[in-house]
């Protein structure tokens, strides 16, 4: 099934995207409201939460260019050393810009 990108067609496509995205925003919480939160489930949720971040970042580092790798390494090093997010993030972005300028 295809929708032509006419004026109403575009609105329909945006509406479809909105509904699908909304379903992902609501779905997890909706399903959880039927689950009894045992310590085991709570442990699952908490470990999963930080794993989401890792699962976003690791493939980003592996598929990215030298700039991406530099950004993530510098951010990680500074975050572990200083425990201050803003300087760590800023230095990471500068590193990406620098590496891309030089390479």
């Amino acid at each position: 099934m295809t929708i032509e990108t006419t004026t109403t067609g575009i609105l329909a496509l945006i509406a479809i995207m909105t509904v699908v995205t909304l379903a992902t925003r609501f779905g997890g919480v909706f399903v959880m409201s039927f689950v009894r939160i045992s310590p085991r489930i709570e442990s699952f949720i908490n470990t999963m939460a930080s794993s989401v971040l890792i699962a976003i970042i690791v493939p980003m580092a592996f598929s990215g260019d030298a700039g991406a790798v530099a950004a993530l390494s510098v951010t990680a090093a500074l975050m572990l050393a200083l425990r201050k997010p803003l300087p760590a993030i800023a230095a990471g972005i500068v590193a990406a810009g620098l590496v891309r300028y030089l390479v």
């Binding site: 992902t24 925003r25 997890g28 919480v29 959880m32 949720i45 908490n46 999963m48």
Partner: peptide, 10 residues
């Protein structure tokens, strides 16, 4: 990923 993020806030 929103599904999991939302679930983690439950």
């Amino acid at each position: 990923r929103h599904l999991l993020m939302g679930a983690s806030l439950y």
